[in-house]
Design a protein around this nucleic acid. Structure first.
Lengths: 155, 155
DNA sequence: ACGCGATGCATAGGGAGACTATGTATTGAT
DNA sequence: ATCAATACATAGTCTCCCTATGCATCGCGT
């Protein structure tokens, strides 16, 4: 009935999905608000961007990004100015405060993660591998196609 | 001002947080409803459990687990019976259908993940490493302590 | 046997984060 | 000058999670 994947494959994939979900929840619980920081991080990496560009880079819908940017702007972490070359578009850029918040948050995450991994005798190389695996999984167009044909019931 | 973590550490940690968030979102978008499957998976692994036990294992609050179990029960994927030895408690167990849904979902995830990793020349060992890293990060009490003293502003 | 803190769960209320559908204003190309 | 395409905003809704409470039951000490 089911495909002939190895037991290990099934277990590892399931664990990956479950652990990532728990990790994300855990991060949210500590009010580390990853959603906003993702945007700050994108701006830091790419420089000023429009809302739609940000949405594409973060792989979310445009309305979701609009809301995220609005929140960040209200908090003073980004500036949202009209584009000088396109009246429809806006240019979102990091403010000093946004930059500081990003740095602080990055530091907090890195500290916690580094500490934890060391406590488990995990190397930075292991972390790099994990990040690469996650990046590869997100690459094409995330998990679409996972349900092709066999769409499982909604849980 | 900030701690003396290496640039690599900062970048990797940030990427881990960001990628896991995107992956979870991507999984949700495909209506793979990880939340319910996590419960099914726990029941499959540990056998029948009470609501509070499930909540502890999944590291969520008891009310959250109550709601999850209620949904699953309504969908017929789990059975919720009163405990024979403790009138306060209930016993949640997998139904045949729940077991099938779990297997189907696991299979879908494993297929998608395996395929993607192979496309990027990533080995199963890499996947195992990633899973281990995530597990280690979740171990003590997730990310608590990340904000000790320096609690960053909410984004 | 009784009282009471501890335990197991349900309910109420609310918030973050996402999505789809849709509307509006510009742009750019015909 | 039109008109499809593009950039955003808004409305409405969903899932998942949390805290704060309330309630019934258990089990222990006296």
């Amino acid at each position: 009935m089911h495909s002939q994947l190895t037991h290990a494959s099934l277990a590892l994939s399931t664990d990956l999905v479950i652990y990532t979900a728990r990790l994300v929840r855990s991060l949210r619980r500590n009010i580390d608000a990853p959603a906003g920081v993702r945007v700050l991080s994108l701006l830091d990496e790419h420089g000023p961007l429009g809302v739609t560009q940000l949405a594409k880079l973060d792989r979310c819908s445009q309305p979701t990004m609009s809301a995220a940017v609005a929140n960040l702007a209200e908090a003073g972490l980004v500036a949202k100015d009209p584009s000088p070359v396109d009246a429809r578009s806006s240019v979102v850029s990091l403010t000093h405060e946004g930059s500081n918040v990003l740095a602080t948050q990055r530091d907090a995450w890195a500290t916690a993660i580094t500490e934890r991994l060391r406590a488990h005798n995990r190397t930075q190389e292991d972390l790099a591998t994990a990040v690469s695996v996650l990046r590869d999984l997100l690459e094409p167009d995330p998990m679409s196609g996972a349900n092709r044909g066999t769409r499982p019931e909604r849980i």
